[in-house]
Design a protein around this nucleic acid. Structure first.
Lengths: 143, 143
DNA sequence: ATTGATATTGAAAATCGGTTTCAAATAGGC
DNA sequence: GCCTATTTGAAACCGATTTTCAATATCAAT
């Protein structure tokens, strides 16, 4: 039923590590979230259905998910990192409303082409990029 | 001679705050730096010419500079923030070498036009943006 | 220049997000 | 079931930044 959990457990086994109830629980809740979540919020969410699982384990599981390519850590403004599901076939950028905090996702190949062109001028090869647009969404502009 | 220091002191006075030797010293050193600097490094640099000024004061002054629109805090990877001079008439983006950490700056109006176009699709108006390209510079590719 | 109310200072303590340590519990190959 | 390595949660720790606090400095009103 959950292919990603299977992916995670395959990754864990290949590394000679062990599959545990806690990791499954954290991963399951994480995969049920759409969008972005902090480690702390994920911990709260996990605690509701699986009390007893520690924040430490949440951090450790997020690290494994990241190494497995199933999660990605991002840093927007502020000191706290947020995690989101990684779907390598669907890289995307972010549009963030400064007022209500809503986050939209998008992808634009034309922008990416221009990025590569810019980098080439500096004798640079782009492996990854981060593009965040900050502004006001339609709702907040009316208010 | 230093217009930015004057801008800072005008901002401070308008807020009903007080101009001090320490703030002037921190600001002067900060404005003499090209590119990016951490609070800690700025503190070290300030200490050389103005020993006795505390790290706390450096942080506080950087905060005021940011509120005054004279500095901008950025967060690349890792927990430590870096500050740079804000020059609203010369916004730029960043090209970061994953290996040696070197940072190049660039600006591309074509990319910005495409950004506005994307945002419009979401009924969104862009006020600010952040674009970071991560990759390998020419030197590091050879090594 | 002196005063006095208020903001600023530096050092130390506190906080915050995140990681490490460690003894007890568990997974999973034998 | 046994055995050993991995995992666990709690607590200690860490580095970056903020807050606290008593002493000091600014500056507007004298």
């Amino acid at each position: 039923m959950n292919k990603r959990i299977a992916d995670l457990n395959r990754f864990i086994s290949e590394k000679g590590l062990k599959c545990t109830r806690q990791r499954d629980a954290v991963a399951e809740v994480f995969f049920s979230v759409n969008g972005h979540i902090t480690a702390e919020d994920l911990y709260q969410k996990v605690s509701r259905t699986h009390p007893g699982i520690g924040l430490t384990t949440v951090y450790r599981t997020l690290k494994i998910l990241t190494e497995a390519g199933l999660a990605k850590e991002r840093r927007f403004e502020g000191p706290q990192g947020v995690f989101e599901k990684e779907d390598t076939s669907r890289h995307h950028d972010h549009l963030i409303c400064k007022r209500c905090g809503k986050i939209f996702e998008f992808k634009d190949p034309d922008i990416e082409k221009l990025q590569d062109a810019v980098a080439e001028k500096f004798d640079f090869i782009v492996e990854d990029h981060k593009l965040e647009l900050y502004g006001l969404c339609g709702n907040c502009r009316k208010a």
